[in-house]
Simulated assay, not measured.
Amino acid sequence: MKQFFLISILLLTFNIAKAQKIHTVDYENQADVKVFVVDYENQADLKVFKVKYENQAGKNDGKWFFTKYANQAKKKIYFVKYENQADLKIFFVDYQNQAGWRRASKKELLY
Rank of each mutant, 00 (worst) to 15 (best):
residue 51 V to L: 14
residue 50 K to Q: 12
residue 94 D to W: 00
residue 6 L to K: 11
residue 96 Q to W: 02
residue 107 K to C: 01
residue 20 Q to W: 02
residue 56 Q to V: 06
residue 27 Y to D: 15
residue 32 D to L: 01
residue 66 F to R: 02
residue 21 K to T: 09
residue 76 K to D: 12
residue 97 N to W: 11
residue 80 V to F: 03
residue 87 D to E: 06
residue 98 Q to A: 08
residue 22 I to L: 08
residue 34 K to E: 00
residue 107 K to M: 10
residue 103 R to G: 05
residue 2 K to C: 08
residue 4 F to Q: 12
residue 12 L to F: 14
residue 46 L to P: 03
residue 100 G to C: 13
residue 19 A to R: 00
residue 26 D to S: 13
residue 99 A to T: 03
residue 17 A to K: 10
residue 75 K to C: 07
residue 48 V to D: 06
residue 54 E to Q: 13
residue 80 V to D: 00
residue 31 A to K: 04
residue 98 Q to S: 07
residue 89 K to R: 12
residue 56 Q to F: 08
residue 3 Q to S: 11
residue 49 F to P: 01
residue 64 W to E: 08
residue 52 K to T: 11
residue 37 V to D: 01
residue 53 Y to P: 02
residue 59 K to M: 11
residue 77 I to V: 13
residue 90 I to H: 02
residue 1 M to H: 10
residue 110 L to C: 05
residue 67 T to Y: 03
residue 50 K to E: 15
residue 28 E to I: 10
residue 17 A to F: 13
residue 101 W to A: 04
residue 96 Q to P: 01
residue 90 I to A: 04
residue 40 Y to L: 13
residue 38 V to A: 11
residue 9 I to D: 03
residue 42 N to L: 10
residue 102 R to A: 13
residue 91 F to T: 01
residue 36 F to R: 05
residue 50 K to H: 04
residue 70 A to L: 10
residue 27 Y to W: 10
residue 75 K to Q: 06
residue 95 Y to E: 05
residue 108 E to T: 02
residue 97 N to V: 03
residue 91 F to H: 09
residue 73 A to N: 05
residue 70 A to Y: 06
residue 94 D to I: 05
residue 79 F to A: 03
residue 4 F to C: 06
residue 93 V to R: 14
residue 106 K to W: 05
residue 58 G to D: 11
residue 36 F to W: 06
residue 13 T to A: 15
residue 16 I to S: 06
residue 111 Y to G: 09
residue 104 A to V: 12
residue 59 K to C: 06
residue 23 H to V: 02
residue 22 I to C: 03
residue 73 A to H: 05
residue 62 G to N: 09
residue 39 D to S: 14
residue 71 N to T: 02
residue 26 D to M: 12
residue 34 K to F: 04
residue 106 K to V: 04
residue 90 I to G: 02
residue 96 Q to D: 15
residue 42 N to S: 11
residue 91 F to L: 13
residue 5 F to W: 09
residue 111 Y to P: 01
residue 99 A to Q: 04
residue 64 W to R: 02
residue 66 F to T: 03
residue 86 A to K: 00
residue 60 N to M: 07
residue 72 Q to A: 09
residue 99 A to K: 04
residue 9 I to Q: 05
residue 33 V to T: 00
